[in-house]
Nucleic acid binder design. Structure first.
Lengths: 231, 231
DNA sequence: ACGACTTTGTGCGTTCGTTCACAAGGGCTT
DNA sequence: AAGCCCTTGTGAACGAACGCACAAAGTCGT
């Protein structure tokens, strides 16, 4: 292991495929888990197995970040953790505002996975005045009227929408107007946003429906096992 | 609108692309919303706008289910809602078991989106004996020991894993052994399952990390706006 | 110092998904 | 009944992603 490594200017090619980006968090988590087990070096085969992906795909994904492996040896875990974290932007602090403190918002505010990975819940906001001032995980719930001020004060650019579907689009417009440029949407509606704003949606019901689709297929094929038969 | 329609034997071609399946819940929801607004007929263009997708993609997706539109007119909303629901398996009852009744499990047990779409929380299970018997959304929390019995009794084939990462794989093995064939996994670990079992994962932290990645890119490009310049 | 061995990084063929653009087909008006 | 207009359904071009298989490149043993 040579001591000094070249520090690349983040994403050499300027364009990392979206599919790769979506897997980087997975690699990061797998690497951290390996490090905690005391592993210092890992091959693409091992890491791929830990992450549950094809090893060639893993190597190609990592190659988009740079040549961080050593042929014949593998990857240095510490070093790779850092590089992936840096590429993902986990080395900086990301204040996040959660809008909607119902059941889901509550759960999100308490979720360790957010706080433990560079994200910090900067503020909780809810439309329900009755909730105002209540503490959730040590943080007070703010009335909706303070939304813009909180975003500006805490320099928030990422918002989590955990509000009902009916108000989600209006809320989103307000968030964008207040300077939010990334939205994680839990409301089951497709949010319209202007160019330059990113939206990712987490749709719990959809996921179950997709499972139900395949489940139905399994049941069908087990009831008619001779569909392909033929003479 | 002709009165009698041909009832296809579900998925004419036998194989619907996975990408299409993943969008069917979205179309279903958009259609239901249109129906509630009193819309009886919708064009691919309109429905695509409501769902936030390209209209050609929508038409191709729907064509995989069958020819349910009328050229020059569009799609009958009621009829299409039914066809999509049938294809997704929403016309049948899907009992679901939720394993892990922490913050997230609590929120899921209370989530309307599940129950309102053919899914029924048949049982709640948690490892923590202190929770046993407690009512969540009117349902008692069962001790982990009763897991297999509950799955058998209620004919459950879909499980939701909302347990900590450390126990997720063991839990999953147990679920599969008990007859579960579809798993919705909220634990941040890639679950290993045998052939024939489907797993979908919802990874809250990953979604934020993906947003952070793009957010970082935005910041970088706004700081160095002349990257592409050249002489 | 050298060769055998290991593992990375990647060129290439294949598969999957998206989008364009238009022919086919149904309804509506005259 | 005939033609116009509208929208579907799809062929075909394009592009993104995957995975094989191998050359390049480094390590380790002798």
């Amino acid at each position: 292991m040579s001591g000094s490594r070249v520090e690349r200017p983040l994403a050499r090619g300027r364009g990392i495929p979206e599919a790769t980006v979506a897997r980087l968090p997975l690699y990061h988590r797998s690497l951290v888990a390996l490090r905690e087990r005391g592993v210092t070096t890992v091959s693409s085969e091992e890491l791929a197995a830990a992450a549950g992906v094809n090893s060639a795909k893993l190597r190609k994904d990592l190659s988009h970040l740079g040549s961080y492996g050593t042929r014949g040896v593998g990857y240095d875990v510490d070093y790779l953790v850092y590089q992936v974290a840096r590429e993902l932007g986990l080395t900086q602090d990301w204040p996040v505002v959660i809008v909607g403190v119902g059941n889901l918002g509550h759960a999100l505010a308490n979720y360790d996975g957010f706080t433990s990975r560079g994200f910090r819940v900067a503020a909780l906001v809810d439309n329900d005045e009755a909730l105002a001032g209540e503490l959730v995980n040590g943080l007070p719930v703010h009335p909706l009227a303070e939304l813009e001020q909180l975003i500006a004060e805490h320099h928030v650019s990422i918002a989590v929408v955990a509000a009902p579907a009916q108000v989600a689009q209006d809320l989103c417009d307000r968030l964008v107007a207040a300077g939010i440029t990334s939205v994680l949407n839990f409301a089951p509606v497709p949010l319209q946003v202007p160019e330059g704003v990113d939206v990712r949606k987490v749709d719990l019901a959809s996921e179950l429906q997709i499972l139900a689709f395949h489940e139905q297929r399994k049941q069908m094929s087990s009831l008619t096992p001779r569909t392909e038969a033929a003479g």
